[in-house]
């Protein structure tokens, strides 16, 4: 077709540039190209879904749409702390530290698997741990438990120093309660 002819002529126009491109990069380098800049990955990181990026490129992508953190290739969930850096033998850490960016997230080391998994269960070996918690509302627990069937004294007469003291205490505890509830909501 005639249109194809036009297309291939523009291809020829790029010919000289193509040759230099091929010379500078071996044919199999495509496997280690960043999926964003299409150049060979610098400060390489790999996502959990297995896609390779330059750390600066991926960082910029995550910054561009902070509300929608997805892998640029397969749209799987992705986040800064869930990517793995790749450390080759010929480290390129010496050049271009990229001060403006946060450093690449560190690799995560997990301890080698313990094959005799139950050895630590004996009481004598000092590995036994035990914890006990009441959950988010210990105050309710204390209040209902320790004030059970407690007859509370009536309020002191207004104007007495005791009354004033109680008012201050009451306000202080109210404030504490508000702070605590606020903290619960935030956390």
């Amino acid at each position: 077709m005639s249109e194809c002819g036009a297309g291939s002529s523009s291809k020829d126009g790029q010919g000289s540039e193509d040759t230099t491109y091929r010379q500078s990069e071996p044919a199999d380098s495509g496997a280690y190209e960043c999926n964003i800049c299409l150049d060979s990955a610098r400060d390489a990181v790999v996502s959990r879904c297995g896609h390779l990026f330059c750390w600066p490129c991926l960082y910029q992508w995550l910054e561009t749409c902070p509300h929608r953190q997805v892998c640029p290739v397969c749209k799987a969930g992705i986040s800064q702390d869930k990517v793995t850096p790749i450390y080759g033998k010929g480290s390129n850490d010496k050049k271009d530290p990229r001060n403006k960016l946060p450093p690449r997230p560190p690799g995560q080391r997990t301890e080698p698997e313990n094959h005799n998994a139950f050895s630590g269960f004996g009481f004598g070996e000092g590995n036994f741990q035990m914890s006990f918690g009441i959950g988010a509302f210990p105050f309710g627990f204390f209040a209902s438990t320790f004030n059970w069937s407690d007859v509370r004294p009536g309020p002191p007469p207004a104007g007495s120093p005791h009354h004033e003291e109680e008012q201050i205490l009451s306000k202080a505890f109210l404030l504490l309660a508000i702070v605590f509830i606020f903290w619960l909501l935030i956390a």
């Binding site: 077709m1 193509d18 800049c37």
Partner: peptide, 18 residues
């Protein structure tokens, strides 16, 4: 990136088949 893509796309099979 556009330079690289341009080279990629004009070599692609789809361009060859118009």
């Amino acid at each position: 990136r556009i330079r690289r893509e341009f080279r990629e796309v004009i070599r692609s099979e789809e361009v060859e088949r118009c």
